[in-house]
Design a binder for these strands. Sequence first.
RNA 1: GGUCGAUUAGCUCAGUUGGCAGAGCACCGGCCUCACAUGCCGGGGGUCGCUGGUUCGAGUCCAGCAUCGACCACCA
Length: 878
Amino acid sequence: MTQSNPSSSAPIPDRYEPGAVEARWYPEWERRGYFRAEPERPGKPYCIVIPPPNVTGSLHLGHALVNTLQDILIRAKRMDGFNTLWVPGTDHASIAVHVLLERQLEAEGKTRQDLGRAAFLERAWTWKEESGGTITRQLRRLGASCDWSRERFTMDPGLSRAVREAFVRLYDAGLIYQDDYIVNWCPRCQTVLADLEVEREERDAEFVYIKYGPLTLGTVRPETKLGDTGLAVHPADPRYAQYVGRTLRIPSVDGEIDIRVVADEAVDPEFGTGVIKVTPGHDPTDFEIGRRHNLPVRTVIGFDGRMTALAGKYAGLDRFECRRRIVEDLQSLGLVERIEPYRHAVGLCYRCKTVVEPLVSKQWYVNVKPLAEVALQAVREDRIRILPRSWSKTYFHWMESIRPWCISRQLWWGHRIPVWYCDADGSVHVSRTDLEACPKCGGPVRQDPDVLDTWFSSGLWPFSTLGWPDDTPELRTYYPTSVLVTGYDILFFWVARMAMLGLHLMKEVPFRDVYIHTLVRDPQGQKMSKSKGNVIDPLGVMERFGTDAFRFTLAVLAVPGVHDIRIADERVEAHRNFANKLWNAARLVLSNLDGYAPAGARAAAGLPERWIESRLWGTVSAVREALDAYRFSDAAGALYQFVWDDFCDWYLEIAKPALYRADDPAGRNRVQHALVTMLETTLRLLHPVMPFITEELWQRLPHEGESIMLAPYPSAPAGADEAAEREMGLLMQVVTAIRNIRGEMRLSPASTLAAIVKAAAADEPLLRAHAPLIETLARARVTLDPHATRPRASALGVAGRSEIYVELEGLVDVDAERQRLEKEIKRTAEAMAFTRAKLARPEFTERAPAEIVDKEREKLAEQEALYAKLVASLSWMG
RNA sequence: GGUCGAUUAGCUCAGUUGGCAGAGCACCGGCCUCACAUGCCGGGGGUCGCUGGUUCGAGUCCAGCAUCGACCACCA
C-alpha cells in the first residue's frame, strides 16, 4: 500500500456507524482524484452527463434516486476498467429562479421592475453564488463520484457560447423564426410559456348562456365577450345555416354591436347550443378560426391580466373581476338565458400556478418538426434505446404531434436572445458576438430584451459540457454519452430536446441509452410537495440510517416500470440493518484472522467452500446482468440475498467451528482463506451500491490496491458448481428438517436432539461424510442408519428421499403430535391426489414436454413414499 | 376525448420467454447460542380484480367488464 488510509485501526464497534465513515472517505476519494476523467486514458469510454439540478434547489428524493443510479453505473464501470466520466453541473433555471426571487422581492414590497434588469441580475448571480453550492455539497454527501473538475453551469461562458452558436446555426438553417401568434401568457411571471409549460387542472366554473340577438351560446369566459369579433357555427348545421355570412346587430353590455357569423369545422354542433363566440385575441381555437375567416384580433385583456382600454367601461378591471361584472350586467340587461355549473380544465403556469391567459404576441420559435423527424428515426432505429421500452411510445406520440417550440421568454435571468435590431434601417441581425453597431448602416442597435427558454440551453447539455462548439478531446472521446438517466417528467422537456438538438448540431445521437426511472412518492403515494408538508428530506434519511442504507433502498425501489414508487422509513431501516449485518459479518471474519497465512491456504476446498464460492459467482453474474439491463432492484436483491442468507446465515455458521478450533490450523487457514476471499469479492461487488461501508471494510481486510474504487469489479471465472450446490442443498434440507421439528415440537434451542437419519442409498455417503456439519448446525447428535425403523416417540422429517427421526424421549405431548401428523397426512393426500389426477390425463402425458412429465412422476413417487411413512407413523402413535 | 399503465399475503411491492405463487415489513411461537436483539431459529397467511377464451397446463397470452392512476388534448 502506497498511501496511508483514513480507516482507523481501533477496535471495531459492534454496530456500523455510518456518519464518521462517510465523512472520512468522500473527501479522501476526491482528494486522491479518483473521480477525475482523462480522455486519453485507456479503456472503452463510458460517459454520463448529470441531469443538471436547478442551481437554487436543494437535494430532494428525485435527485437522490437519479444520482444514486448514475453513481452505481459509473462506479461499476470505473471498476470494470472503462474510461469513465460523469459530468456534474447545474441549470440556471430561468423561470424557477424568477419565481423564487420575485417572492423574496414581494416580501420586501418590491417588484422586479422596481429593481430594474441590472440589479435583478446582480441579485440572481448573488443568489446563485450563495446557494448554488448547496446541491453539489449534497450530491457529495450522497457519494456521487462525479468529476467535479468538470462541473458546468448552463450560464458558464463556455455554455453561453454554445447557446449562441446553436441559435445562429438554427437561425441560418431557417429553423428559428419570429411569429405573431397566440401564446400562453403568465400574467404573474410576465412572460410567455411554451405549450409544455402549461399545466392543466380541473376546476369548477359557470357555463353562462348568453343571448346574441337571435342566437344563444354558452361560454365559461364571458369577459372575453368584449373581444368578440365573430360568431361561428358548424357549416353543416341546418339550425344556423340562415345566419352564416350575415352580420348581426345585437344588444350587448356596451350597447349595440355588429358581429359576423361564420361557418367553421372547428365548431362542434353537439356541444352547447352549437354556436360559439369567436375571440381571436384570447383563445387559441378562436385565433385559428379568426385567421381562416379574416376576423380581426381584438385584445381586451392585457399582459398584466387586466382589461385594456378596448374594454371600455371595464378597462383596468382584473379579468376575473370583470367576468363577475359582465355577468351581472348581462343579467340586468336580460341577456343571460341561464347559467349551468361546469367542470373543465384550465391552464396554469407550471411554475407559479397562475391561470394562463392566451394572448397574441410576437415571439421567437423553433420549427422543431424537421428536427423531430430525425429524432424520431433515431429511436425507431434503436440508435437511441429508451428503457423501459414502453416509454418509446410516449416519445413517439409527442414527437409525431409536435408543434413549434416557443423559445423566447420575457424574463431577465437567462441567455439573452442573440438578436440585434437596427431602428434606423429596420434590419435584424443574429450574431455570435455582441453587436455595437448596425453592420448594415453603422447606426445604433439594441439587443432583443428577451431571454431563451431554460430548456434551450439544457438541450445542448450532452455536448456543450464537453466543449462544443470546439472540437475537444472530451467531445471526441465521450460523445455520444453512454446513458442518460432521468425521470419521465422531463422526457419531453429535456430528453426530446436533447435528441433533436444533438442530432441536428452534432449529427449524432447524444446518448445511446435513456433509462427512465419512476418518480418517488411518499408512503401514501402522494406526490411530494412543500405545500402538502410531506416532503421527505433525503439528508435527514441519510443522517438517520446512513447513506449506504439509503442508496441501497433506492436501488431496491428502482424497478423498471411506469408507476411511481413509494418510500417509507421501514424500507430504509431494513437496509440499515443490512449494512449492519455486513459490518458484523466482517467483524467476525476480521476478529478471527490471527495466524492467517494466505499462501498456506491452497489445499483443496471443502464442500461448504465450494458451495459458497459457487453461490458467489452466481451472484456476480446475476448482478452484472442486472446492471447491464438497468435492473437495479434485481442487482440489489441478489446482493442482499447472498450476503444475508448464503454468506451470513449458512456459511459463517458453518465456518465458526473451524475458526474456533485450535487443533486444526490447516483447516482453519482454509476457512480463513475462503472467508477473506468471499468477503473481499462481495465488498467489491457491492461497492457501487454501498460505497462507504465497502471501502471501510475492504481497507481493513487483506487486499491489494489503494482503494476499493480502483479495484476490479468481480467477474465470475466459471459457471456454477452444480454438484456442490446440490449436495449442500441436501445437507441444508436435513438441517432445516431437524430445526423444523425443534420448532414445531417446542423443543428448547439449547437442547441437543437425537436424530436418526435414514438416508436414501444415493445420499448416504454424503450425509455420512458431513454428519458433523449437520450436528453443529442443527444442534443434534446424528445417527446414520439405512435400515432404521422409526422409534415410537419421535417426530418425522423429510429431506429429499431421506427420512429423519428425532427422538422425543417422552418430552412431548403425544396427542399434539398425533394431530400434527393427521394434518400432515391430509395435506400430503391432497397434494398426491392432485399430482395423480394430472398424470392420469392423457392430454398431459402425451403433449407436455417429457422432462415436465418426468418431474411430475418423480414428485408423485416422493409424495407416495411420504404418505406411507406418515400413515405408518400415525399407527405407531397408538 | 385519446393514450399508456395498474389490480398478487394485513401493508408496500417483485414475479424476464406460459411449467408447483415470492421478498421486505407486519403478525404468531421459541431463543440475549462467544459477529450482529439493527440479531437467531421456526411458523401461519394469497380462488393472483371479475367473466369468458386459447392451451396438456394461465398470475403470465387474447377479449370483455369493474375500479384506480398517470400522461396527452383548443370541445367553447
